[in-house]
Computed example of a mutant assay.
Amino acid sequence: MTGIILHQYDSSPFSEKVRVCLGIKGLEWQACDQPVIMPKPDLTPLTGGYRRIPVLQIGADIYCDSALIVREIDRRFPQPSLFPTGNRGVANAFEIWGDKVLFQSAVLAIFGTLGDDVDPAFIKDREALSGQPFNVAAMKALAPFALTQIKAQAALLAEQLADGQAFLEGEKPGLADAAAYYNFWFIRTFCAGLVDRLPDVAGLDGWYDRVAAIGHGVRSNLQPADALTIAKAAMPDMVDCLPGEAQMLGTNVMLAAADYGRDPIIGTFAGSTPYSLSVLRDDPELGKIGVHVPRLGYSIAAV
């Protein structure tokens, strides 16, 4: 099987979520570091324009968004499972909460605390990504409120651990832990001292340390040019298609995120599952590339 390539950068919170999942499984993988801000000339040829990080590459198949990436990793490498109790609903709920509610509070707390130290180039890039102002002054005003919300969310996590279990679903770590952990890692990485320790939230710090100790599996580094060479030498896998969408196969469609980073991915519709949508692109330099996005949070439209 072709190796795992994760297009990422080390300070990316959503990349940390994926890295912890790779650690849970003890997998070997290659980190292909991409720029924090645009342009990303060695990433967008693979994705067809999608610019968010992380992106998973396996041969000529490209998986966008951490929500799909972790599930594709679990599908290809099922043991140990990212759903240790078999209750996927619990992990799904933790992930949506971590990616939306807790992440937004973390962003406010971090950038409100950094304030005028935020790089203007980063601000400009994130305004282009989100389509709205990156208002540092407003974030500074909201940072104290965001911190109260983070501590309240931490207390909810502690309730899940109150019976003494090691991880959020029991004695084995899973996606739920990675999805909750990366936000606290994000805050502690960028704003040391803000919520480094929460002694008044019993059990949270021990859980955080246990997740941190999992590590990231076996990492090596790969140059972006080499990742492009790997994609050019491979062919995308065949994918399934839901019966109700089979009539769309081969038609030109556009996929795009519904929240932010809405750069369209245009290709021929190649397949679908209840959780994903796939297109086939024909890149002039790389040849055929399969690009896959989650169904949840992404739109599909005819071109």
Rank of each mutant, 00 (worst) to 15 (best):
A143Q: 14
A246C: 10
R281G: 05
S220Y: 08
F14G: 12
V136K: 14
A212C: 14
K140L: 12
R210N: 04
F103G: 05
A106P: 05
I5Y: 13
F184Y: 03
E159I: 10
L175P: 08
W97D: 00
L56D: 02
F103H: 09
L277D: 11
F134I: 00
G244T: 07
G250S: 06
A213T: 05
L168V: 01
L249C: 10
Q104L: 09
L280I: 10
D200N: 04
K17F: 00
R51V: 12
L277N: 00
D196R: 02
F122E: 11
P284V: 03
D196S: 02
R188A: 03
F103R: 09
G98A: 13
P45Y: 07
D42K: 14
V303N: 05
K140F: 10
F103E: 07
R281M: 04
A302E: 14
W97R: 05
F134N: 06
E171H: 07
F186R: 01
C191Q: 09
P264E: 06
V253I: 10
D117Y: 11
Q57G: 02
G164P: 07
V303K: 14
G170H: 02
M254T: 15
L175C: 09
Y275C: 15
V118E: 05
A192E: 13
R76N: 13
G115A: 02
V70H: 06
D259G: 00
N87H: 12
L22I: 10
A31N: 10
I69D: 11
K151I: 14
R75T: 09
G267F: 05
A146V: 02
L194M: 05
P120L: 05
I58F: 11
Q79D: 12
D61W: 06
I24Y: 01
A246H: 10
R75M: 00
R75A: 15
T2E: 14
I73S: 09
P236V: 03
A138M: 15
D99F: 07
L22S: 06
I123A: 15
A91C: 10
A179I: 06
A152N: 15
C32D: 14
P199N: 06
E72V: 11
T85Y: 02
V211G: 02
T229A: 12
I53R: 04
G23W: 10
A152M: 14
G115F: 03
G48Y: 00
V303G: 12
L46N: 13
G164L: 04
P41M: 00
I96H: 00
L114N: 07
A176V: 04
G206P: 04
K172T: 08
P264W: 04
I230D: 01
K151N: 05
I289P: 08
A137W: 10
Y298G: 07
L82K: 04
M254C: 14
A109R: 04
L43C: 11
A121M: 03
F190Q: 15
A121G: 01
E171L: 00
K124C: 01
D283G: 03
P284N: 13
I214C: 11
L46P: 07
V107T: 06
A128Y: 09
L204T: 01
Q160M: 15
D226W: 01
P224M: 06
I24D: 04
G261I: 06
